[in-house]
């Protein structure tokens, strides 16, 4: 349960992180998370969209519909002021917690050293 909550919180943070770089749409956000994690993390649509919709309901994100290159409608999200605040606070908190946890299990922050 603790791990699930951790993962749920992490996805929200990853979404906030993606949108802190500018507005984005569902697939783009998922792709961005995958690329930025070096392919270590993937987000399924059934996981991504409910969280995006909840964050929108909570006022962390705002959205608008635009027309994509293929002529289809596309829902684009951006951070609200509240979402920006949550991102800044969450980023500091998460980094501190992650560093603390890594220290606690004796791993350092260098990539590839987690398992050593």
């Amino acid at each position: 349960m603790a791990q699930q909550e951790y993962m749920a919180g992490m996805l929200r943070l990853l979404i906030l992180n993606e949108l802190s770089r500018g507005e984005g749409y569902g697939y783009g956000i998922a792709k961005g998370i995958q690329e930025r994690s070096g392919g270590d993390l993937t987000v399924r649509p059934e996981s991504l969209y409910p969280v995006l919709h909840r964050m929108e309901q909570e006022g962390l994100l705002s959205c608008k519909w635009i027309e994509a290159d293929n002529g289809r409608p596309r829902k684009v999200y951006r951070l609200t002021k509240k979402g920006q605040g949550r991102w800044e606070k969450g980023r500091v908190q998460f980094t501190k917690q992650a560093q603390g946890a890594l220290k606690a299990i004796g791993a350092d922050l260098e990539p590839g050293s987690a398992g050593s």
């Binding site: 749920a8 996805l11 392919g39 270590d40 993937t42 987000v43 991504l48 409910p50 909840r54």
Partner: peptide, 12 residues
């Protein structure tokens, strides 16, 4: 609660 937010991110 974001109950169904659980197990959202897959690690590969």
């Amino acid at each position: 609660k974001s109950d169904s937010d659980a197990n959202l991110v897959e690690t590969t």
